[in-house]
Amino acid sequence: MKTKKLTWINGVLLLILILAFVANLCGGVQWYGLNQLWADPNLMATKIMWTIRLPRSLSVVLVGALLAFSGQLMQALSKNPIADPSILGVNAGAMLALMIGSLFGISLSVFNTMWLSICGALITFLIVLGLSMTKQGIDPLRFILGGTVFASFISCIAYAVSLLTNSSVQFRNLLVGGFSGATYSQVELLTVGIIVVIVLVVVLRKSLTLLVLDDATASSLGAKPGVTRIIASLMVVICAGISVAVAGNIGFVGLGIPQVINYLHPDALERNVVPTMLAGGIFMLVVDLIAKTLAAPTELPLSALSAIFGGAFLFIIVAKGSRVTQI
């Protein structure tokens, strides 16, 4: 019965994802039909579809999936339903690393962007993790509070750096988030990232599922929670790092999507990974479509739009109370 429900949810989400992808591909300053893809390749509209819109839509769906999954993993890691890489400063850390790297003369090639953002995300994550550690392990409250304060601190530094070096325009995409200028090289980077993550999820899904339990209970079931936690943390860093490398600092995707999926289908983490990734892709496609069409030709800042939805959702979570139960 449960498997049927999950298959049904995955099927519906996949259908919506395809529809949202087509809408995102067709939408922009001007709307083009899907048949434009098979039209005369010398036509401007066809060139735009192949060289600008297709890599953008692919990047959007992959970043959405990665961010949603990183949120799901972070919530399991911290046993806290309001954990998300953006709230905890991981995205901001990746962004700051890219800005500093660029200002120190490192060219922002796809490869450099990737390692810089992953390093930034990793350092920030380690600092936040360090701030939250107690003798009993991660303290969920310290994790969120320490992370939130540190995220604000890092974001302030990033804005200060951009203002002091007159580079706000250069780093606009990083600061406000966005997919304009997405390339096939970035799609390749994201594809490699998502393949690595999916392979790790398939191999480790049983262990990752036990992250939601306390260490003593997980150990008693035969798991090695310490090792799993390190691998899961690295997965969060990879997901958040490469997402920022491509789309800048977009928040709240990882906060709301896992919660919605868990509400529709309350189940263990391993069985909710696929719907969470699909829903993350859908959310990002829709928000990006709104960003590029609502005030066309001006493109709205993606992080702001995402934050509007995410902020509303955070309000609902807080109003309804935490759904994590300590028994």
């Binding site: 036990l210 939601v212 309350p266 189940d267 139960t325 300590q326």
Partner: peptide, 19 residues
């Protein structure tokens, strides 16, 4: 006092015992 997510179903939790 084990920590488990409150939205896990009983069957999903019992399944964890088969790890």
């Amino acid at each position: 006092a084990p920590t488990v997510p409150g939205d896990l179903t009983v069957k999903s939790m019992v399944k964890l015992g088969r790890y």
